[in-house]
Design a protein around this nucleic acid. Structure first.
Lengths: 152, 152
DNA sequence: CAGTAATAGTTGCACTCGCAACCAAGTCAA
DNA sequence: TTGACTTGGTTGCGAGTGCAACTATTACTG
């Protein structure tokens, strides 16, 4: 314990995870940024609404573990681009029910398709069977390491 | 190909990687942020200098794949905190040779130790053998998906 | 009911980032 | 040597982020 056992960033798990995450995210980013001028957060909010249908910002936070301020701003931007609409909840007038517009659904269909293709290509590269294990590993890391964890 | 095959963010590899990366990085962040008020980039620059000794900013960029402006600013901050010093290179007066100060080395020893401990704990949680495979997977993803990919 | 605590969502601010533009020093070739 | 090009590093600026503070509404409790 006396000798600092030479630390090597290159084999530090958080570092490797970051590099891999950035590499893949940046790569796919082109799809939503170039074509629709969207942010990563906006894309994620859109993806959640596309998948789960109408829901409140709070629900999106709970499901996706994205900071509420980020969601708030992403929602504003998406609304401005006419990709979603808000409606005050009858049960709770603080909450707003978010729904994709027709155009929002179109964009989701397009990007969702591209995401699936990208994901499949990635899994094909590293080997489909191994990719499945990777999923499990990542999920367990996410589950264990505290709670949130967002980042774009 | 007609039906959009319902896309699910939760099993999108880039998303999972991001969540895992954020979770682990945020967790370890406490070590350098709380104690030394350092940024992730600053910590990484320090780690590289600690590991490889004196080198130029350019070298750090090449090794760590961090944007040069990020390195530039991190170096300034570290210098301000007296953790490293600069010296104009005799061979090329554009370049500056960066070296950790005594204090810089102390901090690196401390954080390096904590990083090793954190890394080991993480690997223990997911299983040491599997962790080794994970390393390989991540490296191959990083290698395949283009080049850079930094992000803090 | 009043009065306090909790919750949905927004906003101000300080900070980091990425990109492009920019210096200064070095290289190369006519 | 001069002029065109490359390279190490910095800086200005627009944009995204996190955190804390804040508004409005709802829930709880005596």
């Amino acid at each position: 314990m006396a000798v600092p056992a030479d630390f090597d960033l290159e084999s530090f798990l958080p570092y490797l995870l970051n590099q891999a995450a950035e590499a893949t995210s940046k790569s796919f980013q082109a799809s939503y940024k170039a074509t629709y001028g969207m942010t990563r957060t906006q894309w994620r909010v859109l993806a959640n609404l596309g998948k789960f249908g109408s829901m409140t910002a709070r629900d999106i936070c709970a499901i996706s573990h994205i900071e509420k301020t980020k969601v708030s701003r992403a929602v504003s931007a998406l609304e401005e681009d006419l990709l979603l609409s808000r409606a005050v909840s009858p049960q709770d007038r603080r909450a707003e029910i978010l729904s994709l517009t027709d155009r929002g659904r179109e964009v989701f269909a397009d990007l969702g398709q591209k995401a699936i293709e990208y994901d499949l290509a990635l899994r094909a590269q590293i080997g489909p069977e191994i990719a499945a294990q990777l999923d499990e590993l990542l999920r367990s890391i996410i589950a264990e390491s505290g709670t949130d964890g967002d980042e774009d």
